[in-house]
Amino acid sequence: MTATVRVIVADDHSSVRAGVRSLLSAAPHVSVVGEAADTQSLAELLDQYHCDVIISDLGMPGVGGESNAISLLRRVLRESPHPRVVVLTMVHHAHTLVGLLHIGVSAIVDKRDAPGSLLCAIEAAAGGTPWLSGYAQRALESADPSSRPRLGVLSPREWEIFQMYAHGMTIDGIARALDRSSKTISTQKRSAMRKLGLASEAELADYAQQVGLI
Rank of each mutant, 00 (worst) to 15 (best):
G19D: 06
V20K: 09
V20L: 15
V20Y: 05
L23E: 01
L24N: 12
S25T: 10
S25E: 14
S25K: 14
A26I: 00
A27V: 14
A27P: 00
P28D: 07
H29E: 13
H29D: 11
V30L: 08
S31W: 04
S31G: 02
S31D: 13
V32E: 05
V33T: 07
V33M: 00
G34W: 03
E35A: 09
E35I: 04
E35C: 07
E35H: 09
A36G: 01
A37C: 09
D38K: 02
T39W: 01
T39C: 15
T39F: 10
Q40F: 11
S41W: 07
L42D: 02
L42Y: 07
A43Q: 07
L45E: 11
L45I: 02
L46A: 08
L46S: 02
L46F: 04
L46H: 09
Q48E: 08
Q48F: 01
Y49S: 08
H50D: 07
H50I: 04
H50S: 05
C51F: 01
C51P: 03
D52F: 01
D52S: 01
V53R: 05
V53P: 03
V53M: 03
I54S: 06
I54N: 07
I54G: 00
I55R: 02
I55D: 03
S56N: 09
S56R: 05
D57L: 12
G59L: 02
M60L: 13
P61D: 03
G62L: 10
G62T: 09
G62I: 00
G62W: 10
V63L: 15
G64E: 14
N68C: 14
N68Y: 13
A69V: 08
A69S: 15
I70P: 03
I70V: 15
I70R: 11
S71K: 15
S71Y: 08
L72T: 12
L72R: 07
L73E: 11
R75F: 12
L77I: 03
L77S: 09
L77K: 02
L77T: 06
R78D: 14
S80C: 12
S80T: 10
H82I: 04
H82K: 08
H82Y: 10
H82V: 00
P83T: 06
P83G: 02
P83I: 05
P83R: 03
R84K: 15
R84S: 14
V85I: 15
V85C: 10
V86D: 09
V86Y: 04
V86Q: 05
T89H: 07
T89M: 04
T89Q: 06
M90Y: 14
M90C: 10
M90W: 15
V91S: 00
H93R: 10
A94R: 01
H95F: 08
L97Y: 00
V98T: 10
V98M: 12
G99N: 08
L100Q: 04
H102A: 15
I103G: 06
I103W: 09
G104P: 07
G104L: 02
